[in-house]
Design a protein around this nucleic acid. Structure first.
Lengths: 227, 227
DNA sequence: CCAAAAGTGTTGCCCTTACACCCATGG
DNA sequence: CCATGGGTGTAAGGGCAACACTTTTGG
């Protein structure tokens, strides 16, 4: 009884653009099946390759990016998810700063693009389902971890953080209370710089203090941003 | 380039025994590799079989049990984790009431037994690592979900719930405050029965109100049992 | 001077925590 | 009557949410 199951990895890569909201990285397939349809970047794991290595390799090969933050999401194994044969997909959840990279289609991708998570095209395989799980994870994650770390520029105005949270939570946040909450954690550092957006008063820039964040996390601190 | 990676599933099955604390179900391997060593129940996924089906089948085949609660945990894919060949393991996290089953070794298991999670034997493959991840998940889970549901008898005295939490959190709980917290959620129902343990005053029995719990969960209620 | 976005404190309420004594039973 | 575990209430303090006006800039 010889087992014949293919193992692949797929990555759900989120990026945040202050002007356009949460974005998702997709590639357009060059080959069958689902030729010319949009899909998650990913592909077969090589013999002797670890899962993490496989995702990183595929992201580099297909889209030319290296992600900031990567964690395993879920493994999908319905035998019918690939029309060709029984194939399982170990999916990953990734966060990047879109501006850090010039994405470019390579390898078996005909095209690569960022899509607004509210306006996704039709997707190959069960990738829509994978994305739904990832979005759920993202929504959950922001309530107990400062996800902004990985999605915002190194230096950012407070309003970017606020808007990111509003976008993900889908509701308004009270700026003052939010600021107090973040301040209490002391994981933000004010810089002596300001930034001028299109209009209005210039905003002070901040950066995350990674070290302090990890210290707090080690001690088992509970980051309950929002209920 | 033909891919040759084996896909297996492994289950970390927790059970709670009011007298002996948190227990973990292990099987003793009948065959090489790691012959006669203790290991997690699990095995190869069959062609055309879904991952969930594979776990349930293996649990039935090897230990003769059907679990109460099952969720996917993590997929381990280090190419060297199986000395024979590149094999990935999709691991699962399960909760049962030990008393519900008479465990019995079957199939390729020479023996099956419950072990105190504090006193585990040496384990085959990377199963120790898998268990560590599972214990972490369990500890995390109890802080935001009423795990007791799946681990305690259908009817139980309040002290069982209290002891379960104390065992998992590794610290004392104030009984009165804990009771208030649980009461506020109104997911417990008092029964008109009592139980007499070894000594002391008889205790009132309670049962969980599953329906209410799921209602609250649907509405996005935040069960923050403990920080 | 108008529009746009940034910045800033106080108050009331609720929830959480700290805390100790009596009760019912078996031996 | 003693040991064991079960059952119960209150008060104080901290954390969270609600809430609106002023400041700085560009046009």
């Amino acid at each position: 009884m010889k087992q014949d199951i293919k193992v692949s990895v797929d990555a759900v890569v989120f990026g945040y653009d202050p002007d356009h909201g949460m974005q998702l990285l997709l590639i357009k397939r060059r080959d069958e099946p689902f030729q010319k349809m949009w899909a998650l970047p990913g592909g077969l794991v090589l013999d002797g390759e670890s899962l993490d290595d496989a995702v990183n390799r595929e992201l580099k090969e297909e889209a030319g990016i290296r992600v900031n933050y990567l964690e395993q999401l879920y493994t999908f194994g319905k035998p019918t998810r690939d029309p060709r044969n029984h194939a399982i997909s170990v999916s990953y959840f990734a966060l990047v700063r879109p501006k850090d990279f010039q994405i470019s289609a390579q390898s078996d991708a005909e095209d690569v693009a960022w899509f607004d998570i509210q306006k996704l095209p039709k997707l190959a395989f069960d990738h829509k389902e994978i994305i739904n799980v990832a979005i759920k994870r993202l929504r959950g994650k922001i309530t107990y971890e400062p996800v902004g770390f990985e999605l915002l520029d190194k230096a950012f105005p407070f309003s970017d953080l606020e808007n990111l949270y509003q976008a993900l939570l889908g509701r308004e946040i009270d700026r003052r209370n939010f600021k107090k909450k973040i301040a209490k954690l002391s994981i933000l550092e004010a810089l002596n710089e300001t930034i001028q957006r299109k209009s209005g008063r210039p905003a002070q820039l901040f950066k995350f203090n990674r070290k302090k964040y990890f210290e707090l996390k080690e001690k088992g601190y509970n980051f309950d941003f929002f209920a």
